[in-house]
Design a protein around this nucleic acid. Structure first.
Lengths: 330, 330
DNA sequence: GCCATGCGTGAAACCGGTTGCATTCTGCCA
DNA sequence: TGGCAGAATGCAACCGGTTTCACGCATGGC
C-alpha cells in the first residue's frame, strides 16, 4: 500500500542505501544522486516509516505524556502547551491517562512496548516512586509540576512550592489579614506539604490551621470550605493550593453571605485562564507554565541526547497576580 | 538493553517462532512449550516490541487523536473519556494539537509516518476536507463532535445539531420568552449553522437574530454579549452554541445589571462539568459525551477490522438539563 | 605517470518481530 | 505394530528501514 524505500530506489535507479542516506542528515551522498532520489520520492509521495527506522536507530521520537489530572481544567492549558512544545521539537506525545491506580505499572510496560524515547509525567500528585520506576527501566523521565525531596535522581521541573507558600503568607499578612489558613489539595502530595510548610513558617502566630480538599476540583474546594465555615470562625483569609479549589471555596463563601475580599480573602495558586474571567477575578500566584513546559521538553531532549546525563532540578519562580479576591495593599 | 524475543527463546531452549507464537492468540503451541516460554519471559521481564511486530502485522494500535480545541475546558472532559476508552480497547492515543492552520497537512504526513491504525478527529470546527484527506490516504477516520452534509463518505459521530436547535427554541418558548436569539460559535462551522437552522425554524416569528462569537471561549462570549447589549433591546433569551460562550455571556449580563433568568434567559449547549458548578448553574442542552466517545471508538475499531466497511453516521440524542439560567416552566 | 587519499556507492547483515513451509512429533486407529 | 492425520516446531524469508564494510572511482601531490 504505502510507498517504501525500495520503491523510491527502483524509481531513482539507485540502491536502498542511497535513498536512506539522502534522508539521514550528515550522510555522504553526491548532489546528483540526492537530486534523483528527491525527485523520485516527490513523485511517489514517499515518507520514511519512523517505526521501521526506530528498529535500528533506537529512536522513535515518541514521548509518553503521563498524567492523572484529567478533571482540572488547568491541565488542558498544560496539555496544550506540552503538545505544541513537543511538536515543535519534532517529538510526538503518546498520551497516558492514569485514571486508575492499577494503570501505573501497566502503563510503564506499555510505554516500553512502544519504545518511547522518554516520558514526561505532568502531575503534582503522583508518588515519586512512579517516576522512579521509569528511571529504573532506563527511560529518560522528567517530572513536571511535581516535586519531591525523596527522588533527587530524576529530572524535576516545578515551582519552589515552599517559596510559593511563603509568598502566599506574606501577601495575606501585608494586606492586613490577621488570622490566615491553608486550604490545600490532596494531603499526601508533597507539593501540598511544601506549600504548607512555607506558608506556616512565614505566617507564624497568624496561622490558624490547615485543611485539605480531597481533590483538585470545584466540588472539593466548595465542600471543604463549607465544612470550615460550619466549624465556626476560622481564618480571615485562605491560601488555596489550587485555583479550582479556590473557585469552589469562593462559591461556598458567597452562599454563606460572606463578602470577598472584605470579610474573607482568598488567594489561589496556578493562575489558570479561568482565574482571570471577569466573573471570578481570582487573586492568585502564577505558575510560569510556559517556562515549566519549555524546561521539561529541553530536559527530556537533553536526556535523550546524552544517556549518561545527571538528572537535574529546575525550580522556577512564581509571582503574584493581583485581582479581586484580596483586599488591596493599604 | 531491552529483552528480545531471541533472549527468551535462548533461555527457554526453543526457537524464536515458538516464543512468538506463545504471544499471538490462536497460534498452535503445546502446553509444555508455552509454559517454558512463559516462565522464561517472566524471569527476563520480556515485553514484545509492538513497533517491531507492526512491521509485519501492519497494526500499531496507535490512534491519532486530532483536535484544535485546546482552550475550551469542555475538551478536557472529552480527552479524558477518549484516552480512557481507547486504553480500554487496547489502543494508544497519539495526540495532535492542530493549533495552527499549516499543521493540518503536516500532521497527516506525520500520522502516516507513524502508521497509525486510525484517526479520530475531535472537533466541531475543523473543515470536512480535513477528515476527507485522511480518508483519501486510506486511513480509517472518525469525525466526532462535528458534522457535515458534504462529507457523507467518512464516519461521523455527533448530536443532531438541527434537532438541538429545535429543542432549544422549544425550551425558550415554553418558558414564556417572547423574543429569542441565537449566540453561536464560529460562524463557518457547520455545527453552528445547523444549530441556527433548527433554532430559527422552530422559533418562527419569535426569532430576533443571530450573532456569532469568534471562538469557543469565555472572552468571546462575553464580548459578543456586550456588543448585543449595546445594540439596544435584543432578545429576552439567548440560545448559546456552547457552554463556555454562555458563561461569558452570563458575565456580561451580570455586569450590565440584568437579572438572569428573570429579565434575560440563557441556554447553553454541551453540559460541561463547569455548567453544574453552584456559582454558575447554567441551564443547558447536554451532549451525550460518553456515548459519542464510545461510538467513535467502536466505529474506528470496526474500520480497522474491516477495511471495506462503508462509513456510517451516528447521530445521538441530546437532552435538556434544567438549572438556574432559565425561568421554570409556568 | 604513480600512488595515497577520500568520497560515493551498493551488497549484505541487522534491528525485533511474524509467518509460510517443510519437517518432526504425537496420538489414534486398524 | 504400522500407518496416518493433525498438531507442534524450527528454518528461513520477510516487514522497512539503517549501517558496516569493501570496493570503485576521481582527485591531487610528487
Amino acid at each position: 500500500m504505502a510507498v517504501t524505500l525500495q520503491d523510491v530506489a527502483d524509481r531513482a535507479g539507485v540502491s536502498k542505501s542511497a535513498v536512506s542516506r539522502t534522508f539521514t542528515a550528515g550522510a555522504s551522498v553526491s548532489d546528483r544522486t540526492r537530486a534523483k532520489v528527491e525527485a523520485a520520492a516527490a513523485e511517489l509521495g514517499y515518507h520514511p516509516n519512523v517505526l521501521a527506522s526506530s528498529l535500528t536507530t533506537g529512536r522513535t521520537k515518541l514521548i509518553g505524556l503521563v498524567s492523572n489530572n484529567f478533571t482540572n481544567p488547568y491541565f488542558l492549558e498544560i496539555f496544550d502547551r506540552f503538545t505544541q512544545a513537543l511538536q515543535q521539537a519534532g517529538l510526538r506525545p503518546l498520551l497516558v491517562n492514569l485514571a486508575h491506580e492499577g494503570d501505573a505499572v501497566h502503563s510503564l510496560d506499555m510505554l516500553r512496548q512502544y519504545s518511547v524515547d522518554g516520558v514526561i509525567v505532568a502531575s503534582s500528585t503522583l508518588p515519586p516512586d512512579f517516576t522512579a520506576a521509569f528511571r529504573a527501566a532506563g527511560l529518560p523521565v522528567v517530572h513536571a509540576f511535581g516535586w519531591s525531596r525523596s527522588a533527587p535522581d530524576t529530572d524535576l521541573v516545578s515551582i519552589d512550592n515552599i517559596a510559593a507558600g511563603t509568598l502566599a503568607a506574606e501577601t495575606l499578612l501585608a494586606r492586613g489579614y490577621g488570622r490566615i489558613g491553608f486550604l490545600g489539595g490532596p494531603r499526601e502530595a508533597s507539593t501540598t506539604q511544601d506549600r504548607l510548610t512555607g506558608f506556616q513558617a512565614r505566617a507564624g502566630a497568624a496561622f490558624v490551621g490547615a485543611r485539605f480538599a480531597p481533590a483538585y476540583a470545584f466540588d472539593a474546594g466548595r465542600a471543604t470550605m463549607r465544612g470550615l465555615l460550619q466549624d465556626g470562625p476560622g481564618a480571615e483569609a485562605w491560601f488555596c493550593g489550587d485555583d479550582v479549589i479556590a473557585i469552589g471555596a469562593l462559591s461556598a463563601l458567597r452562599d454563606a453571605g460572606l463578602k470577598v475580599p472584605g470579610q474573607v480573602g482568598i488567594l489561589g495558586l496556578n493562575d489558570m485562564e479561568m482565574a482571570g474571567w471577569e466573573n471570578i477575578g481570582l487573586t492568585t500566584i502564577r505558575q510560569p507554565i510556559a517556562e515549566i513546559v519549555a524546561a521539561s521538553v529541553a530536559l527530556i531532549e537533553a536526556s535523550i541526547a546524552d544517556a549518561a546525563r545527571r538528572p537535574e532540578t529546575r525550580m522556577l519562580p512564581c509571582s503574584l497576580i493581583e485581582r479581586a479576591t484580596l483586599r488591596p495593599l493599604p
